[in-house]
Design a protein around this nucleic acid. Structure first.
Lengths: 145, 145
DNA sequence: TTGCTTGCAAATTTTTTGCAAAAAC
DNA sequence: GTTTTTGCAAAAAATTTGCAAGCAA
């Protein structure tokens, strides 16, 4: 069943949105809840989820499904890709520009209507490469695509 | 904690693997369970999950995280991309070849070690475009990346 | 026999939902 | 004042885990 469009602006919605502004860490819902909860002590996790979905539907933020850790949220709505460190879990925005050319017109010719596409790169980030020999993974290694 | 490497071959493992061979539908774990369960009536879903993970670790199959429906499994381990129909949920293998050029050397220069990358295209498949005006979505529309 | 793997059931984790009360307009 | 949104608690859905018993080597 389709979620009805949001009709009112609430303090909860505003704080959820603000919690993501300028953020480049691609947090999970519970982290966003943690941040908003500092401002609005009575807010519930359910409300955070509902408002995250509202914002996604309005195109103000994006949902990222990058690994088995669950959904992350991204205030950056322009076209860009992501790097996920399989060791520490960090997600970095990638702006590959000329290094990336994906021509989806072959799909259009076959009758597909393309709405979005996304590229995710998995590997080890600089920091984790540096400490590779000495320490253990910071999180369960992703068993991945 | 790291999962210990598999050491024995069981009927359950073999059937899970066989259930995926030649399959292009990218099934979820419960569908694989359903198939294997026809052969091995006593197998449990937990065993299917454990063996799917074993096969992924051995590189015999791949896990696909394409949308919020959860993990799918793919016996095709060669480099390829995926199209996900947001209307019916169908997943199609894409072999974009020349239409796709992704140069990840800029990442290497920045110190990242890249292990894998994947491209997912979302949109509407031919069949769903055809019935677009008349029918409703076959599944909840993905609120997506 | 030895010890890895299974089946079962319970536990986890993440996200969603029903409903009365509170807030927005 | 009316309708939407919230908070809470419970439900759902997907996946994982403990453990005794079963099976592979």
């Amino acid at each position: 069943m389709r979620r009805a469009a949001r009709k009112r602006t609430t303090r909860q919605l505003e704080e959820v949105f603000k919690a993501l502004q300028g953020d480049h860490t691609h947090p999970f819902a519970h982290e966003i809840y943690r941040r908003v909860h500092k401002k609005l002590r009575r807010i519930s996790l359910a409300t955070v989820y509902r408002n995250l979905h509202n914002l996604v539907e309005e195109g103000k933020i994006r949902t990222l499904l990058l690994d088995e850790q669950g959904a992350r949220f991204d205030p950056e709505t322009s076209q860009h890709d992501h790097f996920v460190c399989v060791r520490c879990g960090r997600v970095v925005d990638l702006f590959l520009r000329q290094a990336r050319r994906i021509d989806l017109s072959p799909l259009a010719k076959q009758g597909y209507v393309v709405t979005t596409h996304n590229l995710t790169v998995h590997g080890t980030c600089q920091a984790c490469v540096a400490r590779r020999r000495t320490s253990k993974p910071q999180r369960p290694a992703a068993r991945k695509a």
